[in-house]
């Protein structure tokens, strides 16, 4: 019986289409903005699309991209983010990030917050992110 459960657990792990790791966000105060970063791996053979992210800690949550153009840094909202088959996409500082606007609470270092990532094929994935200095 134990072997069956182990097999099923392994099968479930194998079938998990997306993995999200190393999620963290910046400290910020209530009413201000923060950014969420993580790595998402698409284990499937088809492209996966992150459609949006939801959270209770911010009034607005948007997918954003920081960019550099003619020596100037800018930021813009993006509609969605496509993760290629069998690849990892990094939401990282100075690049793609999840923008958290009008925070409902203070985000202090070492606290954790919950987010829901909504994918086109994989559905909703719940993650925990830690507030890190940065």
């Amino acid at each position: 019986m134990a072997l069956v459960f182990a097999f099923l657990a392994l099968l479930n792990l194998h079938l998990q289409k997306v993995d999200v790791k190393n999620a963290w966000l910046r400290p910020a105060n209530k009413g201000m903005n923060s950014a969420l970063y993580f790595e998402v791996t698409n284990n499937s053979g088809k492209p996966e699309t992150l459609l949006n992210v939801s959270s209770n800690i911010a009034e607005l949550v948007q997918l954003h991209e920081s960019y550099i153009q003619k020596g100037m840094m800018g930021m813009r909202e993006v509609k969605d983010v496509v993760i290629k088959p069998h690849s990892t996409f990094s939401f990282k500082e100075g690049g793609y990030h999840v923008m958290l606007l009008f925070l409902k609470k203070n985000l202090k270092p070492n606290s954790t917050e919950v987010f829901f990532l909504h994918f086109k094929n994989s559905g909703t994935v719940k993650i925990k992110a830690v507030v890190k200095k940065g």
């Binding site: 903005n33 920081s66 930021m75 100075g94």
Partner: peptide, 13 residues
């Protein structure tokens, strides 16, 4: 500017 969530905090950090 303090509403900058990405680049400015990187610099101050």
């Amino acid at each position: 500017y303090t509403n900058c969530p990405d680049i400015c905090p990187m610099t101050t950090h």
